[in-house]
């Protein structure tokens, strides 16, 4: 198509220039020209430092202090061992509940815990919670036809000694015998078994004194 066939094409450039003029005229009053930000001098601390003449001075460096983490690889383990060494110097309690000892007490055994204050407590061991120095045992018994459960910390200074009254007939196939709380499995009172054991122990030891209160001892220092 020849260009002469577009008579209004001359208006296009005219309109464009007028539009541009209008835009500049509109922005003349409102547009504020400030200096670009990069040209204004900013006084910032690092700038001030850079402004000082650069001298090649040597910065003294110190080696880090020796890390205690390297010295004590397992601090909690060390602490537990140290505390067990204090609380159980003979190692009798540790061995009574250690997993490596085949003669160790297991769940299902009837244990007797002699206390420094108060009567001894006997019961079926239904849980052994091995936690280093916080190792505890859960004993269950029935006193005056009421089930009683007690946790004892085996390293507690209040615990004078722990005796195995009767071993479990079979190895328990559970770690925690909580099913012994159910009436179907409840062993009831083990008091007569414990009394029989205490009588037999006192007979073996020569019948020094009546051991109704469980003064017979298997390990630890003699009280009398």
């Amino acid at each position: 198509m020849p260009p002469t066939s577009r008579p209004l094409a001359c208006w296009k450039s005219l309109l464009r220039s007028s539009r541009h003029q209008k835009a500049t005229a509109r922005s003349l009053t409102t547009y504020h020209h400030s200096k670009p930000a990069s040209q204004t001098p900013i006084t910032l601390p690092w700038n001030a430092l850079n402004a000082t003449p650069h001298v090649n001075r040597k910065i003294k460096t110190y080696p880090p202090p020796p890390s205690p983490a390297a010295k004590f690889k397992e601090p909690i383990k060390d602490l537990h061992e140290a505390q067990i060494a204090v609380l159980d110097p003979t190692g009798a309690r540790s061995s009574l509940f250690s997993k490596s000892n085949p003669e160790a007490a297991r769940v299902g055994d009837i244990l007797l815990v002699r206390l420094k204050t108060g009567d001894p407590f006997a019961g079926v061991c239904i849980n052994i919670r091995r936690r280093g120095v916080d190792t505890g045992i859960l004993l269950r018994n029935e006193l005056t036809r009421v089930g009683v459960e007690m946790w004892f910390k085996i390293y507690s200074p209040n615990v004078e000694g722990i005796e195995v009254v009767q071993r479990a007939a079979k190895r328990a196939r559970r770690a925690r015998l909580t099913y012994l709380r159910k009436p179907k499995h409840d062993m009831g009172s083990v008091q007569n078994i414990v009394l029989q054991y205490q009588r037999s122990r006192s007979a073996i030891q020569g019948g020094g004194q009546n051991d109704r209160r469980g003064n017979s001892r298997k390990k630890g220092k003699a009280r009398r």
Binding site: G136, V146, G147, V148, E149, M150, W151, F152, K153, S156, N158, R181
Partner: peptide, 21 residues
């Protein structure tokens, strides 16, 4: 005089009964 809720003593031992009384 008895609670089925475990009660911890100052020496770390815990006592629990089967009933509340």
């Amino acid at each position: 005089v008895r609670t089925a809720k475990k009660l911890q003593r100052p020496d770390g031992s815990v006592v629990k009964f089967d009933d509340n009384a």
